[in-house]
């Protein structure tokens, strides 16, 4: 978006890694080295103010972990994440509370993102209470947020509990809750994947609209290229904990540079029988984040892999507005 402060980075992630140890301490003791899952392994990502970026990849590629790292729901094993210039790992107390008010999340499953024992009003009051908003302003703020997400007649929902609402209504409440504190940054983790197809468009439209109206910086996590295309100008494709391609969504779909992106683009069904990209046959072997291949992570499924792919990890190559991590372009 072209706000007065557009072009200023809001989020800068530098070489961020998140490694999870699997198995107990005891099995690590017996088996020697504990198994590490490298969910995110050296990702750098910069988000400009007002930018909306799609984080695309198949399950297990680390996109959700990356989203949680950016919100400090996880602490990275390595690397640094700066939010508005501040290292979020160093935040505590009042600084952390301020950050929590500015960075919000829209959850994948609205049926679980709200405490079933809380009324909608209580769920919406929680962030306001935490942020120290005076009680007198609560009703007004809630009403505004409900309006933003197009929940007409909010009064009828407030006294209800989550199980009395439909999925689409719930996801709007979850969005309203994220918007209550006027955040700068929102991570949306597959916000429509648990919803009925018939209500997806409505929720997506609300997301797009709200993002544009408030000039939010947003990350939209999805495995569905078509959805990302609909809501994000820029897309970052991840594979097995690393970024493979990063650039404007449309350009990427027109001319995918990385073999994996090509496979993703080709996998989107199109109504056009003469589709421009021949499908790229990639191996089906499910990637194992515990034992990733050497060099390029994608090489064991890549039909175009050559010797160099096994030997060294591809370095980022800038091609126009895009960055690709592949030896074919290096």
């Amino acid at each position: 978006m072209s706000g007065p402060r557009a072009g200023v980075p809001l989020i800068e992630a530098e070489d961020v890694a998140m490694h999870f140890r699997v198995g107990s301490a005891l099995s690590a003791l017996v088996g020697g080295r504990p198994a590490l899952v490298r969910a995110v392994d050296g990702v750098s990502l910069t988000l400009m103010r007002g930018e909306s970026v799609g984080l695309l990849g198949e399950s297990g590629c680390g996109k959700t972990t990356m989203g949680r790292l950016l919100l400090r729901l996880l602490r990275p094993s390595a690397g640094r994440i700066r939010f508005d210039g501040e290292d979020i790992a160093a935040l505590s107390g009042a600084g952390l509370r301020r950050f929590r008010a500015r960075a919000q999340m829209i959850f994948q499953n609205p049926f679980e993102a709200l405490n079933p024992r809380f009324t909608i009003a209580a769920a919406l009051a929680e962030p306001l209470e935490n942020a120290g908003i005076p009680r007198a302003e609560w009703a007004g703020r809630i009403e505004r947020a409900m309006e933003l997400v197009r929940l007409p007649d909010p009064g009828q929902f407030l006294a209800r509990r989550p199980h009395q609402l439909s999925g689409g209504q719930l996801q709007r409440v979850v969005m309203a809750r994220a918007l209550l504190l006027d955040p700068d940054f929102v991570v949306a983790d597959e916000p429509v994947s648990m919803l009925d197809v018939s209500v997806r468009a409505g929720v997506l439209n609300v997301f797009r609209e709200v993002r544009a109206r408030l000039g939010l910086t947003a990350i939209y996590i999805s495995h569905d290229l078509a959805l990302v295309r609909y809501v994000c100008e820029r897309t970052v494709v991840m594979y097995l904990g690393r970024v493979v391609e990063d650039g404007p969504t449309e350009a990427m779909i027109e001319d995918p540079l990385h073999p994996y992106t090509r496979a993703l683009v080709a996998a989107v069904p199109t109504p056009d029988p003469d589709q421009s990209h021949a499908p790229l046959p990639i191996g089906r072997g499910a990637p194992d984040a515990r034992n990733p291949p050497s060099g390029c992570r994608f090489r064991d499924r890549c039909p175009l892999a050559h010797d160099r792919c096994a030997a060294e990890a591809p370095r980022p190559t800038r091609i126009g507005a895009r960055t690709v991590y592949c030896h074919l372009h290096g």
Partner: peptide
């Protein structure tokens, strides 16, 4: 590990 616990953390609950 419930999402609403994470949601509470995101919205600033101690």
């Amino acid at each position: 590990t419930r999402a609403y616990v994470e949601a509470a953390r995101v919205c600033g609950s101690s």
